[in-house]
Simulated scan of single mutants.
Amino acid sequence: MKKHIFTLFLLFNSLVLLAQESYFPERNAVWEQKSSSDFKIDSEKLNAALDFAKDNEYSGSRDLRIAILKGFEREPFHEILGPTKKRGGPAGMILKHGYVIARWGDTKRVDMTFSVTKSFLSTTAGLALDQGLISSTKDKASDYIWDGTFGGEHNSKITWEHLLQQNSAWSGELWGGKDWADRPPREGDIDDWKFEKPKESGTFMEYNDVRVNVLAYALTHVWRKPLPQVLKEHVMDRIGASTTWRWHGYDHAWTEIDGLQMKSVTGGGHSGAGMFISTEDMARFGLLFLNDGKWKNEQIISQNWIQQAIKPSEPNVNYGYMWWLNRKGDRYWEGLSENIYYAAGFGGNFIVVDKENDMVIVTRWLEPNKIGEFMTKLKEALD
C-alpha cells in the first residue's frame, strides 16, 4: 500500500512540473533565477558540473584570429575574410522551465559563436517556408535562384533540404572560397580530391562552409533583404533579445537585389564573420526552440518546422537542418536522451535543447571534446 502511495506521489510531482508554465524573460530585465533545490536538483553535483566547465576552457588562443588561422591551417588558400573578435573566458547558463538555475562567466559579453550560426541560418529558411516564400524543402533551389549559382547538370539537382542537411555536394566557388578547398581530407593527395567528381546530392554529408554560405546567399535572394534583418524582425526582437548581437558576412560578400547592395552573411566563422552574440541571447534562442517555437502566447516559428529541423538526415543520423542530434551514431552522448538536440560551434560554443527535462544549456569556450562529459555530470545532478 505504501509503495503505491509513494508511486502516486512521484507521479503527482511529475505532473505538477510538466504543468508548470515556462518563464520568459522580458527584454533588458534581470533574468529571474531559481534555486536548483526548487527543482530537486542536487546542488553539490550541479556545482561539480559548473566547476568542470570552468576548468576545461577551450585550449586555443583567446585571440580568435590566431585560433582560426591555426585551427584551419590545413586548408589551401585559407585566410581571414571577415571580422573577428578576441574572446572572453568560459561562460554559460542553465535554464529550467525558463528560469536560470546556474550561470558562470560574463553572460552579457558578445563573442563569436562560429557554427552555432548555422542554426540561426536554418531558422531563416524555416521562416521562409512558414511564410510561403519556399513551398517545400524538397524543391530544387534552381527553381528559385536562376542566376547560375545552381546551374549545370550537378548543381541543378540540389534541393533546399540538401543545403540544410549539408549533403548538397554543391560544386563551385563563392566569395573566393572553393568548395573542394574547405576541410580537405586528412589522407591522400589534395590534388586528387580537387578534381574528384562531386558526390550525388543527398547521399553524403560534408561539413563545408562554402556550401553553407551558398544557402545564405540563396535565402538572401528569396527574402530580398539581408538575413540579419529577417532574423531581427521575425525572431530576435520578438523574443526580447538585446540589441548587441551582430551577424556578419565577409568584407567583400555583396550582392545586388532590387537595385540595392546587400551583404550576404556567413553560416560560420572559420574565415571570420558569422554570428557575434551574448550567452543570454543564445539562451533566449534555445528557449524559443524548447517551447516548440512559441514565446509566451505567440507562435514565432512553426512547430512543423522545428520537427523537420530535428529529423535525422539519411546520410547522417546525427544531423538535421543544421542542428546536431543526440542519436546513436558517431556523435552520440552515451547515456543521455536521444531527444536532445543542439547547435555547436568552434571553440566549444553550444546551445543544447533538452525537451525531456525542460532545460536549455548554453556553454561558451568549453573544450569541445568535453561537452559530452559535462552533460553527463549535469544529468547526474538531475538524477
Rank of each mutant, 00 (worst) to 15 (best):
L11C: 14
N13E: 06
L17N: 09
L18M: 13
S22K: 06
Y23R: 00
N28R: 00
V30S: 04
F39A: 09
I41E: 07
R65N: 14
R65T: 15
E73L: 03
E73W: 01
P76M: 03
P76S: 12
F77P: 00
G82P: 10
T84W: 01
G88S: 12
A91M: 05
L95E: 09
Y99G: 08
I101F: 04
W104H: 05
G105A: 07
T107Y: 03
T113L: 03
F114Y: 15
T117R: 10
F120L: 15
A125I: 04
A125L: 15
D130E: 09
L133D: 02
S135P: 00
A141I: 13
D147C: 04
G151N: 12
I158F: 08
Q165W: 02
G172C: 12
K178E: 13
A181P: 01
I190H: 09
V210L: 11
N213G: 14
A216G: 08
H221N: 12
R224I: 04
L227C: 05
L227R: 09
V230R: 02
E233R: 11
V235Q: 05
D237P: 01
R238Y: 05
T244W: 00
E256P: 00
I257W: 04
Q261R: 15
Q261T: 08
V265D: 08
T266P: 03
G268D: 15
G272R: 11
F276T: 06
L290D: 02
N291G: 07
W295M: 07
N297G: 09
N297P: 00
E298F: 03
E298W: 06
I300K: 07
I301Y: 08
W305H: 06
I306R: 13
A309W: 01
I310N: 10
S313L: 08
S313P: 05
E314T: 15
P315A: 13
N316T: 10
G320Q: 12
M322K: 15
L325P: 06
R327F: 03
K328T: 09
E334K: 14
Y341A: 11
G348Q: 12
N357P: 06
N369C: 01
K370N: 11
F374Y: 13
T376D: 01
L378G: 06
A381V: 06
A381F: 02
